[in-house]
Every structure is written in C-alpha cells, then in structure tokens.
C-alpha cells in the first residue's frame, strides 16, 4: 500500500493508507502514527490515527511543511512492513438492544430514514439478508469488534467487525443526519459500529444502548479517573446482549459508582487472525471469560 499524502491547510498532513477499509490499512495507519510519536519531531502537536488513514497536526513556524512531509515519507516503508501485532485489551460492553429510548428517537426522525415503515434494526436485518431482528442481533453480538478509530466526538469508538468481509454487516447511514441521538447509543453506519459517547447529532442507525459510561469529563466514574475516554485504537470489544432488568441493575451500579467493566488483557496478531479468524476470536473469548 502506498500512502497518499495531502496537506490539510498549513497545519496538517493527512495520509490515506487505503481508500477502502481493512485491518491491514488500519495497522499501517497505527504503525505510522506510532513511528511519528516515537520520532518526537519538533513542531508536531497532534497525532491522530484513523480507520484507514491518519493525520498529523504541526506548527509550521517550528517545522516546514515539506520537511515534515519528507520525514513522514521516510517512515512509510518501515511502517507498512512492521509486524501487525498488539498487546491490547478486550472489553465487554453490555447492550440493551431494542431499548425504548433509541426507539423513541428513531420514531421522531423516520422521515430521514431509507425505510420509514421499519425500525433501524428491522431495516438492518432485512438488507443484510438476516430475516429477523433476533438474527441480526445475534450476528452483531456474536463476534468481537476492533476499535479502529476514536473520535468524531470525545471518546467515541469506531468499531470494525472481526469477520470475513462477506459476513460483515453493512447498513447505510440515515439519508439526512438526526439532530438528536441518546447518549451511549450503539449505532452502525457503513461497515462500522460506534458508541455515541455524548448526546447529539448523528447519522448512524440506532440498535440499542449501553448502561456503561465510556467518557467522563468530571473523572468521577471509577474506571475513568485517570483517562476521561475509555477507548484507544486497537482495543477489542465484545457486545453482550442484556435485558431491561440487567440494564436497570447496571445503571444503578453506575449511579452508585460501583459498576465494574469487564476488561482483560489480550494479544492480537493480524497474520494469525487472517489465517484463522474463528480460532483467533475463540482465543479472545477465552481471554475475556477466563476459560
């Protein structure tokens, strides 16, 4: 893969590893941003990996744009050959699918949807050929997902499915974005799922909500006291479907600040994953469930 570089005004360099999404493109992007961070280049102020691209913000008074571009181009060969493996974490996210709050919201914005006669989940199940909402939820929650980008708003993870491309769930975004999305909505657009960290505008289809905070600017939530944002690129997520009762109990635990997320260390190797996806995912589940 040859990275396409472009200046974003006089303060950014944008690097597109690939036009299409793949874990290979993500790992090259992550390697590039890790290399830029390790190089400690004077004048670099922000280093942002994304799904299949990345961005470096710089102060052109400290480094000439062309000089920084040359430095980045010099890192490209090493980054694309680097061993795509990670010491990372697997995080279980409880999801109350078909909850009343996203349902109320999606009904308010039906006229912006491709199929106003169906809910977002009914539509997603149909266009993915899965027949029923239950089958869709099973497909959505049975395999792990890979955090390939953090952003849009504070701490929002973009999640990529760890299955063969043919099996990936794809759903278009709303025709026109909504002006409202409940906080902690689990959404999906294109091939990505996400968790909306704050209430606000959004264009992804809405499938459910999690009771588990993922961003806390007040840093009071027990597991968000050191870092306001839970997710980092490279984290692995497993959705756990829960009932209304489970949701209410989890929410009570969150409110009393005794909610403990299930987070376990895990290793991930892209080459092993490509050789044996089912086997890799099974090992990740063992890491999560301690079996």
């Amino acid at each position: 893969m040859t990275i396409r570089f472009s200046f974003g005004g006089d303060e950014h360099i944008f690097g597109e590893v690939s036009e299409s999404m793949s874990l290979e493109a993500f790992f090259t992007s992550l390697s590039m941003t890790n290399a830029v961070r390790a190089a400690g280049i004077k004048g670099v102020t922000e280093i942002c990996p994304a799904n299949a691209s990345f961005q470096v913000k710089f102060d052109p008074d400290a480094i000439k744009p062309d000089d920084l571009l040359k430095e980045l181009q010099g890192m490209e060969a090493a980054a694309s050959q680097s061993d795509a493996s990670l010491q990372t974490r697997i995080i279980e996210i409880p999801v109350f699918y078909q909850d009343p709050w996203t349902h109320e919201t999606l009904m308010r914005f039906r006229e912006r949807h491709q199929d106003p006669s169906k809910t977002d989940l009914e539509y997603a199940a149909e266009i993915n050929g899965l027949g029923t909402v239950e089958n869709f939820i099973k497909a959505h929650s049975s395999q792990p997902w890979f955090v390939s980008m953090v952003g849009f708003v504070a701490g929002l993870p973009f999640l990529y499915q760890m299955v063969e491309r043919e099996r990936q769930l794809q759903v278009p975004k709303y025709l026109r974005p909504r002006t409202d999305t409940p906080k902690l909505t689990v959404g999906h657009g294109g091939c990505f799922s996400c968790i909306y960290s704050v209430r606000g505008a959004g264009g992804y289809q809405m499938f459910g909500v999690t009771p588990m905070p993922i961003y806390d600017p007040t840093q009071k939530v027990s597991y968000l006291q050191d870092e306001m944002c839970l997710f980092r690129p490279g984290d692995i997520v497993k959705w756990k479907p829960i009932s209304r009762d489970d949701y209410d109990a989890a929410l009570e635990a969150v409110e009393e600040n005794r909610f403990e997320p299930v987070i376990r260390p895990a290793t991930f190797s892209l080459s092993e994953f490509n050789k044996d996806m089912a086997g890799t995912n099974a090992k990740l589940m063992e890491a999560l469930n301690g079996r």
Partner: peptide, 12 residues
C-alpha cells in the same frame, strides 16, 4: 461524498 471515516483537520 462518503469516504471511510477519517480525521477532519481544523478548517477542513
């Protein structure tokens, strides 16, 4: 007008 979700520079 869609791309694989990418970073947005300030001023973009």
């Amino acid at each position: 007008s869609n791309i694989v979700d990418a970073c947005y520079p300030y001023g973009s």
